[in-house]
């Protein structure tokens, strides 16, 4: 890890530099129009003239406007520091109960993510146990479980929301169902692989101990499935978060990170979109990191890492 520290910093710095460099040409036309409005001489005159010019040429002709491109109110591409400021203002500087606080919206999304993740993981593990112990179930369900991963399940998210709305269920539950659905299949597939991972020697050993099949499950199959389970949990929780965010889009939801994205895109509030996006990214990263930590702790105690 320490060996990779410097390269990671360099790569991140490089990405930020590219981002900053892209801000200038992306925003130059807007900045020039704004500058012209307050009476600064701009070459060439008139927004119409500039529309078909290449952004690069405009930058070279109007170098004075470069610093303006980083400070627009509704830029096409906000600069990193603008996004960071907005993120700071809408998390730390706002009361958490405020409708404009990202902590508030993040919590709405997080709660349905976690509820859905818990349901999906629980059902997934149960189905995996069924598949491993019941041959008919294995042969009937497993091909469909695998095939369903190639289907863009996320596309049905809006329908689930609307259908549950029409039967009177609102708020956290429909979103949680989408999250559950998305985390369900990765867990099933990973867990089946995990429960089958003990090799024949180990299974035979348990037989010579005269272990019942229940004991075989608790003492051999379940422990040896843990690495597989954690690997699929990481995929599952990321998918759950995406599901919760997309689940917030169709009803024009007023709360949640997805709603922030949508309202930002309706009103052209680009900085709001980017900060919601960054908040979602931080949430996803910390959830995956949390699972990673749990994995390390569990596997350490089991002596498997």
């Amino acid at each position: 890890m320490r060996r990779s520290f410097l390269p990671i910093i360099v790569v991140i710095a490089g990405l930020l530099a590219i981002w900053y460099a892209a801000v200038v040409p992306m925003n130059i036309k807007m900045a020039l129009t704004a500058a012209e409005r307050i009476g600064i001489a701009v070459t060439p005159v008139g927004a119409k003239e500039r529309r078909d010019r290449s952004a690069m040429r405009l930058v070279v002709q109007n170098t004075f406007a470069i610093k303006d491109t980083f400070a627009l109110e509704r830029p096409r591409l906000p600069a990193p520091h603008q996004v960071a400021t907005e993120l700071w203002n809408s998390t730390i500087n706002k009361k958490i109960t405020s409708k404009r606080s990202l902590v508030f919206h993040g919590w709405i999304t997080l709660s349905s993510t976690l509820l859905g993740f818990a349901i999906g993981t629980g059902l997934g593990i149960l189905l995996a146990i069924g598949i491993v112990y019941n041959r008919a179930m294995d042969m009937s369900v497993m091909p469909w479980a695998i095939a369903s991963q190639t289907i863009p399940i996320l596309a049905i998210a809006p329908m689930i929301i609307v259908v549950f709305n029409s039967v009177g269920l609102q708020g956290i539950v429909p979103k949680a169902i989408i999250s559950a659905y998305l985390s369900f299949f990765p867990v099933v597939v990973g867990m089946v692989k995990g429960l089958r991972s003990p090799d024949q020697m180990h299974l035979d050993l348990l037989k010579t101990y005269n272990a019942s099949s229940l004991e075989g499950f608790w003492k051999l199959r379940l422990p040896s499935s843990m690495p597989f389970l954690f690997a699929s949990l990481k995929i599952g929780i990321a998918a759950s978060l995406v599901g919760a965010i997309v689940g917030e889009l169709p009803t024009g939801a007023v709360r949640g990170l997805g709603a922030r994205l949508l309202s930002g895109s309706y009103y052209g509030q680009t900085i709001q979109i980017w900060s919601a996006l960054l908040a979602a990214a931080l949430l996803a990263a910390s959830l995956v990191a949390l699972i990673g930590l749990l994995q390390r702790l569990t596997l350490n105690r089991m002596g498997m890492s």
Binding site: I8, V10, V11, A238, L261, T270, L277, A280
Partner: peptide, 24 residues
Amino acid sequence: FLRRGLLPVGNFLAALPIIGTAPI
């Protein structure tokens, strides 16, 4: 050098809800 830097960053980015960039 680049590989060691890009792999963790890419792994991180791949796990993010990238679909959120759609409105942008």
